[in-house]
Design a binder for these strands. Structure first.
Length: 384
DNA sequence: ATTCCCTTTCCTGTTT
DNA sequence: TAAACAGGAAAGGGAA
């Protein structure tokens, strides 16, 4: 069984306890954002002129796709807890914003975390409107985004205030480290958090060296055939996956044995646990950025969905896995392996139509394909 | 170290 | 005929 749902541990938010009274967080204001209740404000995002005045910051689309589609909580670092805000790295800031969202009862998937890929220094200098600007999210209308942004801003100010107090205590008492009270033991090297740090520091979705691994990645000297002909797909194929005339001739002369070529795995970096294929599809279907433009529900009540642009979906999957050679053919093979466990089931006769099976992921939404029209209540909420 | 599961790659054959 | 589909085979990689 696939672990599609991971329970949210409220205690995660209680590790860091600021000495000052925390900024008032109006939890009641955010009930609307809890899972299952948010979808009623979907639908008219693209026609919402008010929202459009808050343009999303320019961010890398590949990285954004990666962040949007990954359940990245598992490799978040908590380093930020032990540092001053001004010392936070971009990853620290994103981890903090995720933690802040969770503490407000908001799913981290509903917060544009990647828009906050900034250093702590830059975060410190943000004004309230800057935070709002980056908080804009297609799942929420402007007033909702503003409420989240306000709370995040208050949390930030509280944390900065605490930093100042600690800083002054350093000057007064000559303490060597601002956050020295947190236990740091040798065993930390083997903890999940340590691994997470590796993920965050070593794994860069946009790192060009990872996108184009070297052709000498195979270390299997015995397998001459594979290493010369097929060990590295990046060597044999063009960037678009097409084959040159020479390569076509070689393929006719040397029939490649079945199987994944040795050395084709990208071992040069640590990769966090990524979503499974069915989970990835579910995420696309529940995201207005991709549904219904490239994939859409055919019959949500049956879990039936259709690929509108199969190649685009495969490209997204490939982008997420740092694999430029992904095709729909290969992606669909991965899908078919999920027939056995009834995570997916085939839909005979209908092409490009598949169905989530009895053991498929949670696909609950009350607004499939994002067609629901705003209610009057929602509209009045917008202008309140 | 081993095993299991998922994924990737390539393949042959079938269906639409 | 091309595209999509089905599934075998083999290998890589992560997790338990």
């Amino acid at each position: 069984m696939i672990d599609y749902a991971r329970p949210y541990d409220q205690n995660m938010c209680d590790i860091y306890l600021p000495p000052m009274p925390p900024a008032p967080t109006r939890l009641d204001d955010f009930q609307v954002f809890k899972k299952g209740n948010a979808s009623h404000i979907y639908g008219t995002y693209y026609s919402n002129a008010t929202y459009d005045t808050y343009e999303e910051p320019g961010i890398d689309s590949a990285a954004n796709v990666y962040q949007n589609l990954l359940s990245y909580r598992e490799y978040l670092s908590d380093d930020w807890k032990y540092k001053m805000v001004v010392d936070w790295s971009e990853e620290d800031t994103m981890s903090w914003i995720t933690d802040a969202a969770q503490c407000m009862g908001i799913s981290e998937l509903d917060v544009p975390v990647y828009n906050f890929r900034v250093s702590g220094l830059e975060l410190r200098n943000m004004k309230r409107e800057d935070v709002l600007h980056r908080m804009a999210h297609p799942n929420f209308d402007l007033s909702s985004s503003r409420r989240i942004a306000d709370s995040v801003y208050e949390k930030l100010q509280a944390r900065l205030h605490e930093d100042m107090q600690r800083q002054s205590s350093i000057f007064r008492y000559g303490e060597s480290e601002a956050y020295h009270h947190e236990p740091q033991t040798v065993l930390d090297l083997d903890t999940i958090d340590h691994k997470n740090r590796l993920y965050m520091s070593d794994y860069k979705p946009n790192d060009s060296t990872l996108m184009h691994p070297g052709c000498d990645s195979s270390d299997d000297a015995e397998d001459v055939f594979r290493s010369s002909e097929t060990a590295s797909p990046e060597c044999s194929y063009g960037s678009d996956g097409s084959k040159s005339g020479d390569e076509e001739d070689k393929r006719k002369m040397f029939k490649r044995p079945p199987g994944r070529p040795k050395g084709s795995g990208r071992k040069t970096f640590k990769r966090p646990r990524s979503v499974s294929v069915p989970e990835f599809l579910r995420n696309l279907l529940l995201d207005p950025k991709y549904c219904p433009s490239i994939i859409k529900w055919e019959d949500h009540s049956l879990g039936k969905f259709r690929f509108v642009k199969p190649d685009e979906v495969a490209k997204l999957w490939g982008k997420m896995k740092q694999n430029d050679n992904m095709t729909f053919e290969k992606f669909s093979r991965a899908m078919r392996y999920h027939y056995r466990q009834s995570v997916l089931v085939s839909v005979p006769t209908a092409r490009l139509v598949y169905q989530f099976g009895s053991k498929g992921p949670d696909i609950n939404t009350d607004n499939p394909n994002f067609v629901k029209v705003k209610t009057e209540m929602d509209m009045s909420d917008m202008y309140s």
